[in-house]
Write a protein that binds this DNA or RNA. Structure first.
Length: 314
DNA sequence: TTGGCGTCCTGGAGGC
DNA sequence: TGCCTCCAGGACGCCA
């Protein structure tokens, strides 16, 4: 599942390749991708514009276009953004002419030469002949075009602090968690608090911090917050260093698998021995999501009584 | 205001 | 072999 490390890996690969390139054509093949905005409107809004950079915010990937316009994309669960260089396939030019039409008609030979085209949802052609393919098996991913102030408002309503830019401190975490009864696992996955953490890195961060996923978020003391900040940053940086994790569908911009799944400390390791204390790693469901933890060394905190507010003196 | 749950969506695994 | 059911999960809407 693309979380912060996966999206950042794609961003770092795309940035040097597409910065300065001009979008010569855009095709939205699945109306769900841009819903509720009609595909043609999105295509018109970005065609002809130069790409000034590639940014990331939480799990969102942003093509920064000239004139203050932005194409904001979210990969959700099975989305991939693939960069197909112009010289990858000498025969591609002829095939590209027919790719969209062949796909529309369900041409049987199309998927032999382009298996990823089966789930192609949007396609952006660049002026050097390269293409960006947004593919997505489960069709949860989407794209939206936003201008400057709209972009700020869009993220302000959805995303909290960025964990890797120094904004996440123990004090900030303590403030975010205060009074919250939600389990730590759910708390970490709430993008309005901390942006970019999903199911995988929430498990890994809590293991590193030695905190039980069912502990109420508001039960943390300062020392727990310090450990959790360290756990979050450590887990995300490990993901980045390994090119992200590929449990199912994730591929980077070059179509390569990540290696982080080989480095998981608890996630998907049910029944295996904990590398820290030797206890058997367990799987439970928290908030409808599979959650892996070590019952031996991840401490379950008790809910702290809410501090009484001082009565206003009259 | 907060937390929990259902929904969207598809491919793969497992059961019969 | 073929059909059916269940499961996976990010974000969002709805309800208690």
């Amino acid at each position: 599942m693309p979380e912060l490390p996966e999206v950042e890996t794609i961003r770092r690969q795309l940035e040097p390749e597409v910065r300065g390139r001009r979008i010569t054509a855009a095709r939205v093949l699945d109306e769900r991708w841009s819903r509720p905005v009609p595909p043609a409107q999105v295509e018109r809004a970005i065609t002809g514009l130069r790409i000034e950079g590639v940014r990331r915010r939480g799990k969102y990937l942003i093509l920064v276009l000239e004139g203050g316009r932005n194409l904001v994309m979210h990969l959700r669960m099975t989305g991939n953004l693939l960069l197909r260089p112009a010289d990858v396939d000498p025969a591609h030019e002829d095939e590209a002419l027919d790719l969209i039409e062949a796909r529309r008609l369900g041409h049987p030979r199309l998927y032999e030469s382009h298996p990823e085209a089966r789930h192609l949802r949007a396609l952006i052609e660049l002026d050097d002949g390269s293409e960006l393919w947004f593919t997505d098996v489960r069709r949860f991913g989407h794209g939206v075009v936003l201008d400057g102030e709209e972009l700020d408002a869009y993220f302000a309503a959805r995303l909290g602090v960025e964990p890797l830019d120094g904004g996440l401190t123990a004090d900030e975490l303590l403030r975010l968690a205060e009074g919250r009864a939600a389990p730590l696992k759910s708390f970490l996955m709430d993008q309005r608090g901390i942006a970019g953490i999903g199911n995988i890195y929430a498990d890994e961060a809590l293991f590193r911090a030695e905190l039980h996923p069912l502990s109420p978020a508001g039960s943390m003391r300062r020392e727990h917050c310090e450990a959790l900040v360290e756990g979050i940053v450590g887990a995300l940086e490990a993901g980045l260093a390994n090119g992200g994790s590929s449990i199912d569908d994730y591929r980077d911009a070059r179509g390569e698998r990540g290696r982080m799944q080989e480095e998981f400390l608890v996630h998907t390791r049910e029944g295996q021995e904990c590398g820290r204390c030797g206890e058997t790693i367990r799987r439970i469901v928290v908030g409808g999501r599979s959650t892996y933890f070590c019952p031996g060394c991840q401490v379950r905190l008790r809910r702290r009584p809410r501090r009484r507010r001082a009565r206003a003196r009259t």
